[in-house]
Design a protein around this nucleic acid. Structure first.
Length: 959
RNA sequence: GCCGAAGUGGCGGAACGGUAGACGCAGCGGAUUCAAAAUCCGCCGGGGUAGCCCCCCGUGAGGGUUCGAGUCCCUCCUUCGGUACCA
């Protein structure tokens, strides 16, 4: 008896072998096909790998190992997207330099990935924070700058939190304009920002999607780009000969029905044209709108508000004088920041017109000419022009003219009058590219400084001329970050780099200059890493044309769908810019894209109890739980945001119960609840944003209790409690999160079951793209499978061809066919089940043919490479099987001579029969009619019709 | 609201328009064992009948197309993801 399967021995053995032999070094050999298979490289967080990483990485690894065995040259690299906020936050807390944190985390990630046996070419590892990498990120920025695609905007509104000394993203700001962390006031500050002109590529980014083999992500990007065709129309303003309001509309056919014009609060003309008696009101309204957070402003369910300017615009199509309003439902940054309002045919305009009693004029009828009642709701569909449209228009509209034609007619007429033109508008905005942070690529730009001395010395007066940006010479790259001691954001929105005075200011030929202190966003490094992988150590260029030709484009790109829009759109944008520069040769970088599905935690069964809030002062820590100091009862804690609490002179109270919470020294608030005996059925429980649950009716917090499968039974569509069959239980898999405590650690699983089992299980869970709940017992199932693979391949193996029976040969070849096809289609779960069937069969044989065992080790090796290699060696392989030819199947052996097909009578399955594979209809029918069951169903009836699909079905229609 | 994906046993999931539930997990029964673990074998949608034959029902709901629908079409419901005063 051979030794037992022990992954802890064979896995390190083969990992060392691959490393020492550089088994997976990517090389191009003449005359071979190539495949560039790319994983989205990770941000090396301190938490290490989670089970989501190996999912996509195993999928690509299987493809790569399979392709190598089929003679393909494979590029399969890995690297680190290593700039980013967590390392910087860690630095602020601990004073550890982000570089050392980052390097430590990278080491940990690399160790974990190597333990999983991925066939990366580790000589191509890239790190976006490496100066040799940063150099070329900055080089690309300079190209963008020189093409005018990187530019500064001086008054980009940002969320500035003075208390935290930092700029916040929109989702870090609460609805009432405070910081999510700490609840400090947030101001809208207009600061100078770098932007990239991605909008210049909007059309090409949209068109480029067409021929890509991408999933629904294409639709998401198209939606994000948001192209709309319409027209700009100019309205003159009465009493302001120079002023002209340009509106963008997609429904220029409704122009005769425009009864007022609305400007965004930030529109430049708003204050200018407001009449004296309306000035103050317009100003107040604009200020209020500006103070509102974007979250509040974009809440479409909010009632519309607005104020009149007192001014009147002239509708160019009929000369009508219509009022000009200011309202925040019009967005300043989309279109022209002004709309013509046609309440009869636009929902928002309708709601606004009803509220402020503005006239509603109907100019579109249904296609058949019938008029729609627009008193209650707008009619927004296309239709035909009605009589009013004709009478109210100087343009040659005819009654009954379809909307599409009216649009062309009106646009042409406006153009001829010089009052409008057709226009295409995009939702896509330019990409704000600067961050007021330390741990990012410095922007390789500096500015002239006028000063009365050395601007590095305190008290020196100086002025930085941001309007005169100067790019660094390419030879001066990379521009590296200065070493800082203190990474805290300060009072200066220019960011922490502004404090590195020796770095920031420099003197050249008697003149002073100041470097840009903003850094690039984390997206920058990931915008081109796939290009660096083809030539990772090149110091003459980001990549050479030869290396590019050898490997690009990326043939398969696998990563999470959370990057469906931003990363994938930004990278495509840079690629197109590089294409225009002639340094890349394809318009699109990623040919085929697949998103692996999220892996959720194990399913939890949850029972809800009514709860009573307990004052924070009574909560006592006991081990890792909280108890009520008075009653000794277990308490459930809930972390609260200060904005959800009542602040009474510095003491925070729960709103729902008027009970004080516990506030920790670092400003976190915890509410506590004691469970009551009263159960609440799951259909009444509603999950809150913070993960806690409330009663949908009473809005009161519910306490949860986890139960096991033994405690519950499925009744109808739901699980209910055995002890209380009316109480529904919530059975749900939640997203893995530290706070929920349902995170599965790959290190632990590798230790207990081995990397091969983990890889195999993740592929066996279900389709790659699907969201799937984790099930630890499932990994034990695939572990058993690997044990069986091991046992059939190491025990009783016979080299005698006489023992290789035909049935086994057939099954081996069918399995080869199935696995080959499934791997090519990325259907790994069904490929594994096919191998399970083969192993089951081999296990039942008195002796296992060596040919079958060898085929099995080859087939299993892309999925579970360590056991594959080990068995291959034990079966006589002299070297790694990584380049062993993938087994071919014999078509003759895949076909069966006798097959089983179903027989239906009147479309209902009644029996199955064995027939020769090449049997024709008559033969099949004859055999079927001999079958006793079929005889029963056809007895005394005539066969009216026979449907026969060769190899599939026989259907007898009788009557 | 809009766009997209998906609803199949106790659970994860299979199924070119052709015998629904492959494969695995959990469960049940048996073999092995002094015993247990491990392993191996068998059963495993619901109901009827009853042991092993067989019949009926069954892929979110309701219609439709078809000899035949989990699969195609229409309407609706639910879940998940994205997005949202975008004129």
């Amino acid at each position: 008896m051979a030794e037992a399967y022990d992954p802890s021995v064979i896995e390190p053995k083969w990992q060392t072998y691959w490393e020492e032999n550089k088994t997976f070094r990517a090389e191009r050999r003449p005359g071979r096909p190539k495949k560039y298979v790319l994983d989205m490289f990770p941000y090396p967080s301190g938490a290490g790998l989670h089970v989501g990483h190996p999912e996509g990485y195993t999928a690509t690894d299987i493809v790569c190992r399979f392709e190598r065995m089929r003679g393909t040259d494979v590029l399969h690299p890995m690297g680190w997207d290593a700039f980013g906020l967590p390392a910087e936050q860690h630095a602020i807390k601990t004073g550890t330099h982000p570089r050392s944190t980052t390097l430590k985390n990278i080491d940990n990630f690399r160790r974990q990935l190597k333990m999983l046996g991925f066939s990366y070419d580790w000589e191509r590892e890239v790190d976006t924070t490496d100066p040799r990498y940063v150099r070329w990120t900055q080089w690309i920025f300079l190209q963008l700058f020189k093409k005018g695609l990187a530019f500064q905007q001086s008054n980009m509104p940002v969320n500035w939190c003075p208390a935290l000394g930092t700029v916040l993203a929109n989702d870090e700001v609460t609805a009432d304009g405070r910081s999510e962390v700490g609840g400090f006031p947030v101001e809208k500050l207009k600061i100078r920002q770098w932007s990239l002109k991605i909008t210049a590529y909007a059309d090409r980014l949209l068109e480029g999607l067409e021929n890509l083999d991408w999933p629904e992500t294409k639709a998401k990007q198209a939606h994000w780009i948001g192209r709309s065709e319409g027209a700009n129309v100019d309205f003159e303003v009465e009493g302001h000969p120079g002023a002209r309001i340009t509106v963008f509309t997609t429904r220029v056919d409704t122009l005769p029905g425009a009864t007022y014009v609305v400007l965004a609060p930030e529109h430049a003309l708003a204050l200018q044209i407001a009449t004296p008696e309306h000035q103050a009101e317009v100003k107040r309204y604009a200020d209020e709108a500006n103070a509102k957070s974007d979250v509040v402003r974009s809440d479409a369910t909010r009632a519309k508000t607005g104020v009149p300017t007192g001014a009147f615009a002239v509708n160019p199509i009929n000369g009508d004088k219509i009022p000009v309003w200011v309202a925040d439902y019009v967005i300043g940054s989309y279109g022209t920041g002004a709309v013509m309002a046609v309440p009869a045919h636009d929902e928002r305009d309708h709601a606004f017109a009803v509220k402020y009693a503005l006239p509603i004029v109907r100019v579109v009828a249904k296609a058949d000419g019938t008029e729609v009642d627009v008193a209650k709701a707008a009619y927004c569909d296309d239709g035909v022009a009605n009589a009013d449209a004709v009478s109210r228009s100087k343009a040659p509209i005819e009654q009954g003219m379809p909307s599409e034609k009216v649009r062309r007619t009106v646009t042409d007429w406006l153009a001829s009058q010089g009052r409008g033109s057709s226009k295409i508008t995009f939702k896509l905005r330019d990409w704000v590219f600067s961050r007021q942070r330390y741990w990012g690529e410095p922007i390789p730009i500096y500015f002239p400084v006028t000063t009365d001395g050395d601007p590095r010395k305190p008290g020196t007066k100086y002025e930085i001329h941001y309007d005169q940006p100067i790019p660094l010479e390419e030879s001066e790259l990379p521009l590296l970050l200065p070493d800082l001691e203190d990474f805290k954001p300060g009072t200066d929105p220019a960011g922490p780099l502004a404090r590195a005075l020796d770095w920031r200011f420099f003197e050249r030929e008697g003149k002073w200059f100041a470097r840009e202190t903003n850094t690039m966003p984390q997206w920058a490094g990931s915008c081109w890493y796939y290009l660096r992988f083809v030539d990772p150590t090149n110091d003459e260029a980001g990549w050479s044309p030869e290396a590019y030709d050898a490997w690009m484009p990326v043939d398969l790109y696998v990563g999470g769908s959370e990057h469906a829009v931003l990363h994938l759109l930004y990278a495509r944008f840079w690629h197109k810019v590089l294409f225009d520069l002639g340094v890349v040769k394809h318009e699109e970088p990623f040919q085929k894209l697949v998103h692996q599905g999220l892996i959720l935690g194990e399913v939890e069964h949850i029972v809800f109890h009514e709860a009573t809030a307990v004052p924070g002062s009574r909560a006592k820590r006991e081990g890792d739980r909280w108890v009520d100091a008075e009653t000794g009862a277990d308490l459930t804690d809930r972390r609260m945001r200060s904005t959800d609490l009542d602040n009474r002179g510095g003491a925070f109270y729960l709103r729902e119960a008027d009970v004080p919470v516990l506030t920790t020294p670092d400003g976190e608030h915890f509410a506590f609840y004691a469970a009551s005996e009263t159960l609440v059925s799951a259909e009444r429980a509603k999950e809150r944003d913070d993960g806690s649950f409330e009663d949908a009716k009473t809005k009161k917090t519910l306490v949860i209790r986890k139960v096991t499968e033994q405690d519950i039974t499925k009744r109808g569509a739901h699980f209910t409690l055995n002890d209380s069959p009316e109480t529904q239980v919530l059975s749900q898999a939640f997203k893995m999160s530290k706070s929920r405590g349902n995170v599965v650690n790959p290190d632990v699983l590798i230790k207990s079951h081995g990397a091969d089992s983990l890889r195999l299980y993740e592929m066996f869970m279900g389709p790659l793209e699907a969201v799937k709940p984790w099930q630890t017992s499932g990994i034990e199932g695939v572990r058993r499978f690997l044990e069986r693979v091991w046992n059939v391949s190491t025990t009783n193996v016979t080299g005698d061809p006489a023992d290789y029976d035909v049935e086994t040969q057939k099954l081996v070849h069918k399995t080869i066919k199935k696995v080959t096809e499934d791997v090519q289609a990325l259907r790994f779960n069904t490929a594994i089940s096919a191998m399970m069937i083969l192993v089951k069969h081999l296990g039942g044989l008195p002796k296992v043919p060596a040919g079958a065992a060898r085929a099995l080790s080859l087939l299993v090796s892309p999925f579970a490479p360590h056991i594959g290699e080990e068995l291959w060696q034990q079966l006589g392989g002299k070297t790694s099987l990584a380049y062993e030819p993938w087994p071919a199947f014999d078509p003759a052996l895949v076909k069966d001579d006798v097959i089983e097909i179903g027989v239906q009578v009147n479309g209902k399955a009644r029996a199955s029969i064995q027939i020769p594979a090449d049997a024709d209809e008559a033969a099949a029918k004859a055999i079927a009619l001999e079958d006793p069951k079929i005889k029963d169903f056809t007895a005394g009836k005539t066969i009216k019709k026979v449907i026969f699909v060769k190899g599939r079905i026989l259907n007898l229609i009788v009557g």
